[in-house]
Design a protein around this nucleic acid. Structure first.
Lengths: 196, 196
DNA sequence: ATTGTATGCTAATGATTGTTATTTTTGCGG
DNA sequence: CCGCAAAAATAACAATCATTAGCATACAAT
């Protein structure tokens, strides 16, 4: 009889969550079936339900785990006494590193959150909106202090967040530069701009 | 009996394609059903098949129509005798305008192309790769001429294309700046950078 | 060794999917 | 008004979906 492997102190649910993140990234939430997931975990589909409540719960857990990490980091940045440009750089580096190291979960959260069921969908959207506002506030503070170009802060946030989600393409590319190089290049382009 | 409206000289298939682009954007290709599409068109699901071959064909048509527009524009830019920075700006403006005016189709192409069936999937991926290489070549030319910062061109392309796809958020936002303002802000941020 | 609990399997459920064959209706040119 | 082709409707299909019930097995603690 097949059994879900649990080395260390990871629960069987966590094993399933990890596999789900990988599967949802590969095929998308809607296109991914519980039978696909079962194959990935090495067990029959019905057996999964001993550990999880539903497919929707998997997406929910992935999205909210990721979201809470970013919110937590944002709070840390806000309460630091760096100047806005440094705060921005810290935020950027965190986003980039998360996108590199915690790729599957972050990417799934980025792309598949819209399939969350209510009331979690509204909850997530509120968190997201709030996060972006706090992000924009840091940029606006930088504009007020004359450290940052006079731009629409919301547009800047939009560009930054989506640019970072583009790291997905980097993951898929064959001959890729190192993660460190990617990070430095992204920071240069977004902060210093393309034109010399 | 319901009938598909065809004002002007648009075929019934084109009406269906437009509705499909809208539906695929709203719900995603996989989550969108032919019955959903039928409702949107105002007809029974089976009736759609008098005009189209399959659901896959709809996605295929949307993606390849969009792709060919971008490829065509790229060729025009390449053969112009502007300097690299101007070429880049022209490309950016075209992308932004397409994302604003032809939103549904472009967005669907961006997000749902992976559900294309072979051999179209490989074909599309090749087109995409080629397009990005040509985009990167323009940036590299700018670096060689000393007009552009020494950055990894592939990373720059990645950032630019994904930043522009972020216009999707602008469409969904309630209090949005005008399209023209958005365009100027995006150009400033991407070309001049955030830092003053 | 025995018992209790956690885990897995088989089989089946009703719902929804894309698509088809067939029939009915529509609108247009004569 | 008639006949013909295009378009739509009805009804059905096999496949796939997430999920459940009931039973079997493995494992840990006694």
């Amino acid at each position: 009889m097949a059994r879900i492997q649990t080395d260390k102190d990871v629960s069987r649910k966590e094993v399933i969550l990890k596999a789900a993140a990988s599967l949802f990234r590969e095929k998308g939430y809607k296109a991914a079936s519980m039978r696909d997931l079962a194959v990935k975990v090495g067990v029959e589909a019905a057996s999964l339900y001993n550990h999880i409540r539903s497919k929707a719960e998997l997406l929910h857990d992935i999205c909210f785990n990721v979201a809470s990490q970013f919110v937590e980091h944002m709070t840390a940045v806000e309460t630091s006494d760096e100047n806005p440009i440094m705060k921005l750089e810290t935020l950027l580096r965190f986003h980039i590193q998360q996108m590199i190291e915690n790729f599957e979960e972050v990417h799934v959260t980025d792309r598949e959150w819209r399939f969350l069921a209510e009331p979690y969908l509204s909850n997530y959207q509120n968190q997201r909106r709030s996060y972006r506002r706090r992000f924009a506030a840091i940029i606006e503070e930088g504009i007020n202090r004359g450290e940052i170009n006079k731009i629409d802060a919301s547009t800047a946030v939009l560009i930054i967040l989506h640019a970072i989600s583009g790291i997905e393409s980097w993951h898929r590319s064959k001959q890729k530069i190192s993660g460190a190089e990617l990070e430095e290049n992204m920071l240069t382009i977004l902060i210093e701009g393309i034109k010399k």
